[in-house]
Design a protein around this nucleic acid. Structure first.
Length: 861
RNA sequence: GCGGGUAUGGCGAAAUGGCAGACGCGCCAGUCUUAGGAACUGGUUUCUGGGGGUUCGAGUCCCUCUACCCGCACCA
């Protein structure tokens, strides 16, 4: 028998055994409940680091725990395998993206095996393989047929380096989140999924996601950004044109003193063309476009700027002439791209009006009781009396430096028949009036935009569409799917999308045999990851994207785990997909992930990556050079210790920083496993302990059994609550107790056997290799993965005697060792009689004695 | 600016409103010898970012301030 703990040999031994026995194949026992545990699948970058280990060690502990508790567990893994890195590698190393990707997958798969994660590899899903993307294309066609995929021209984020369009979500601080290049705006014809059609449902159903982290729900709610208001139109003076505006503050409509439209609003050129304002307007538009690019970069406020168009429109409520301006603070893609400006009651309009000396007309009076504080919230505050004296006069004249923006308190003035109403009532009354008189109508607006899924890239899922000679669109017939990538491509990194340069790819025929051109855009990889969780249910199904009966069996996912960085992208897209598929009758659920956990990332100091070349603590990543490679970690301490280390670093939901001191902690985990090894090897193990164990025994025996049963309970409940760090600390305490027990004479070997067997059982989800090896040494013939999680006996777990603190006026004065269930009265008597307490009573009678049985005594004098 | 989070020994961190610092790391002293990535024994001394409040009792609940982190950021 080898008496040293040697992780290298036992880990490879057990990994082979598990593989040969097909141990991790998903069970389908009809008598057992199902549990679908899913980690967000990774991009196959080729190398795992300890940051990855943490994610998958959490999942593996939970999956193994569930298996041992009698569930059919679906715990799959796959690859989000389309994407830019493969294409960049193709350009750099002249290797085909498919080949490069497959190579990375092999490497990463090997690393997962090295960690001993219990994935069912029979269900591996790879989004870049034809058997997967055939169905991504098929799903696209279903969306298209349902009217949920459409082509239109839009200003999009364009990365001049990657030569591709980016979704808003892929732009971070104005830069491409892949390569860091400054993003530009560029008009292109693009494919969109109509996510906006589902905005309301995506918002409403957030209420059902009670087991999501609250902050993720909040982020989605904000991202969807619903607001209620009124749409109505201003006629352009001397023209048939109208400008539509959306406002949430229709109560302030009598305070409109100018109109601002986005510089790229369709009327901007129309109003100014052929006038003296034409050139300035064009220059302004270009200026703002450049400004927008730069602004995203700095992510700071840029000053408001505008220019008069020379045109006027008419306020439909009071017939007043309203000058039309172009402004850099109006977004063309929200609402109708035009804003009715009410400077007296909107900070942005106020700032603009002050700058260009536009009139400011007060239409809401603050209430008499308004607090000074609210007014002073912005800039130097006007005093209350100043506001009340403003009736009808221009704020400019008085020099008040703030807009009154409260939308609930106050009363309307200068608003005709609506004078005197408070803003809330006025919003309703004026909206009613507008609807009754055909001026406008109530409307809801969302910040959520349609999902631009086009990418001008080779290594993505081809969009299965052809353009006929007459320019009309048809989808590729199902029997011709998948549309595969052409192979006659040279990856040069120049000239945009390689697909668009392949004649063999572009030239095709339509369904009637006439010449046609293929769509050359490929899909955003978020499309691939919006349904992979369904594919896992029947990964080899050749007749469809998924088997309905299998989806019904496994979905929804019982526990979904991933990084919080996906809060507003992947998680919204996947929810959108699921709802569409529900509406198409393809799945029976509306929410794919009722339970979500966002684990913290492992961070580490990265050298010289800050804006000014300073060091910065950030998420471990290959590109920043701040990684502890999996191979190094496993080489030094083994997979089991590496897994335990990443779990022990801190609470799973919190980020954990890897520092030089972490190396010592790491060694500590190894030492713990070594002690487990030594202890298991030296204990006298009796396989029949269950039958022979007695109720009595020495104090040490009873203390050991107590600890054993406490540990079983603690570790189980900690795993269920993602408290892996405290579960491991409970395991350590258990081991300490066993060693203490071993150091004393006359211990009952049955108590020791129970303790060691239980320890290995509950340690096995964390350190499966070590446990299986020790199990074998102790004579077990099965892997712990196949055994049942031990049950605990509350009677045995219960403390026999506890120490009760006695306080006098809240100060600790004595400790009493008493029986666990000592009564209130007995406790009081004992406490008052205690020697240590007496002097502190100073002979006085206690006013009050607070007793929490089993907890503490507090005497109030 | 708006929203959210965090703040506890030398370090990572524990603590249903009830003995703060479990567990681990580091450090100090000692024991031992198959000198190892040793192991074992003992020690590491009022302390929960600041101020106020509720309570018999607050790390925990409430208010407020400070620092750091994250998300959103002209959404009319």
């Amino acid at each position: 028998m080898n008496d040293r703990y040697n992780p290298k040999s036992i880990e490879s031994k057990w990994q082979a055994k598990w593989r040969d026995a097909n141990l991790f194949v998903t069970q389908n026992n009809p008598d057992k409940p199902k549990f679908y545990y899913l980690d967000m699948f990774p991009y196959p970058s080729g190398a795992l680091h300890v940051g990855h280990v943490r994610n998958y060690a959490i999942g593996d502990a939970i999956a193994r725990y569930r298996v041992m508790n009698g569930y059919n567990v679906l715990h799959p893994m796959g690859w989000d395998a389309f994407g830019l890195p493969a294409e960049n590698a193709a350009i750099k190393n002249h290797v085909h993206p498919a080949e490069w990707t497959e190579r990375c997958i092999v490497q990463m798969h090997e690393q997962f095996d090295k960690l001993g994660i219990a994935f069912d590899w029979n269900r591996e899903v790879t989004t870049c393989r034809p058997d997967y993307y055939k169905w991504t294309q098929w799903l696209f066609i279903q969306f298209f047929n349902a009217g949920l995929a459409e082509r239109r021209t839009a200003n999009v984020n364009w990365c001049p380096k990657d030569l591709t369009v980016l979704a808003n979500e892929q732009v971070k601080d104005g830069r491409c989140d892949r390569c860091g290049t400054l993003v530009e705006q560029k008009p292109l014809t693009q494919w969109f999924f109509k996510t906006t059609a589902y905005a309301q449902r995506l918002l409403d159903d957030l209420d059902t996601l009670t087991d999501w982290p609250e902050r993720v729900v909040k982020m989605q709610r904000e991202w969807i950004g619903r607001s209620e208001g009124v749409n109505f139109r201003f006629k352009v003076k001397g023209s048939e044109d109208e400008i539509e505006v959306f406002t949430t503050r229709v109560d302030t409509v009598f305070g409109v003193t100018y109109m601002v439209i986005a510089p790229d609003h369709e009327l901007a050129t129309k109003l100014t063309d052929g006038t003296e304002w034409e050139l300035p307007a064009r220059e302004f538009r270009d200026h703002v476009a450049r400004q927008k690019d730069e602004q995203r970069d700095r992510s700071v406020d840029i000053p408001k700027e505008g220019i008069f168009t020379g045109a006027y429109c008419i306020n439909p409520m009071n017939g007043e002439d309203v000058p039309i301006w172009l402004g850099n603070y109006v977004l063309s893609d929200y609402g109708s791209g035009a804003v009715m400006a009410v400077p007296a009651h909107d900070e942005r309009d106020f700032e603009f009006a002050k700058k260009y000396d536009l009139p400011i007309k007060v239409v809401v009076h603050p209430p008499a009781s308004i607090s000074f504080k609210r007014l002073s919230a912005v800039n130097a505050a006007p005093v209350e009396s100043e506001w009340r004296s403003l009736n009808g006069t221009s704020l400019n004249e008085i020099g008040v430096s703030v807009a009154y923006t409260d939308k609930y308190e106050g009363s309307l003035v200068n608003s005709g028949e609506f004078d005197g109403l408070n803003p809330t009532e006025a919003r309703e009354k004026i909206a009613d009036f507008m609807e009754q008189n055909g001026i406008g109508e109530r409307a809801v607006n969302f910040k959520l935009r349609d999902w631009c899924l086009s990418r001008q890239r080779y290594w993505g899922c081809p969009i299965p569409v052809v353009y006929r000679e007459d320019g009309s669109i048809e989808t590729v017939p199902e029997d011709q799917l998948p549309v595969m990538h052409p192979t006659d491509i040279k990856f040069t990194g120049k000239g945009g999308n390689p697909l668009a340069q392949s004649e063999s790819f572009i030239n095709t025929v339509d369904s009637e045999g006439r010449p046609a051109r293929r769509e050359t855009d490929t899909m955003d990889t978020f499309v691939d990851s919006s349904w992979y969780f369904l594919r896992y249910c029947s990964p080899d199904f050749a007749e469809g994207a998924f088997r309905r009966d299998q989806v019904d069996r496994w979905m929804p996912i019982d526990q979904y785990v991933g990084g919080v960085e996906h809060a507003t992208m992947h998680l919204i897209y996947a929810r959108f997909f699921t709802k569409v598929l529900f509406d198409l009758g393809l799945v029976g659920i509306q929410e794919p992930f009722p339970r979500l956990f966002t684990q913290g990332m492992v961070t580490m100091l990265a050298k010289g990556v800050g804006e000014n070349g300073e060091d910065k603590v950030m998420k471990m990543s290959k590109s920043k050079g701040n990684v502890v490679a999996l191979d190094d970690a496993v080489e030094r301490f083994g997979a089991d210790a590496t897994r335990m280390m990443t779990l022990f670093m801190g609470p799973a939901a919190q980020d954990a920083e890897w520092t030089p001191q972490s190396e010592d902690t790491f060694a500590g985990q190894f030492r713990f496993l070594e002690r487990v090894w030594r202890t298991a090897m030296t204990v006298k193990f009796n396989p029949q302990w269950r039958e022979q164990i007695g109720a009595s025994g020495t104090d040490a025996d009873r203390a050991l059994r107590r600890r054993t049963h406490q540990t079983i309970e603690k570790v189980g409940s900690d795993i269920e609550r993602f408290q892996m760090n405290t579960a491991i600390s409970a395991l350590m305490q258990h081991l300490n107790t066993i060693q203490e027990w071993q150091s004393k004479p006359d211990g009952d070997p049955n108590a020791g056997s129970e303790a060691i067997e239980s320890l290995l059982l509950v340690l096995s989800p964390f350190a499966p290799h070590l446990c299986d090896e020790l199990g074998e040494q102790l004579g077990f013939t099965k892997s712990f993965y196949e055994m049942t999680w031990p049950s605990f006996d509350p009677q045995i777990a219960k403390e026999e005697e506890i120490v009760i603190p006695v306080q006098v006026n809240g100060k600790l004065r004595a400790r009493l060792s008493v029986a666990t269930d000592m009564s209130r009265e007995a406790l009081e008597a004992l406490a008052l009689a205690s020697e240590e307490v007496g002097p502190h009573l100073e002979g006085k009678t206690p006013k009050k004695v607070i007793i929490v049985p089993g907890r503490m005594v507090n005497i109030v004098v």
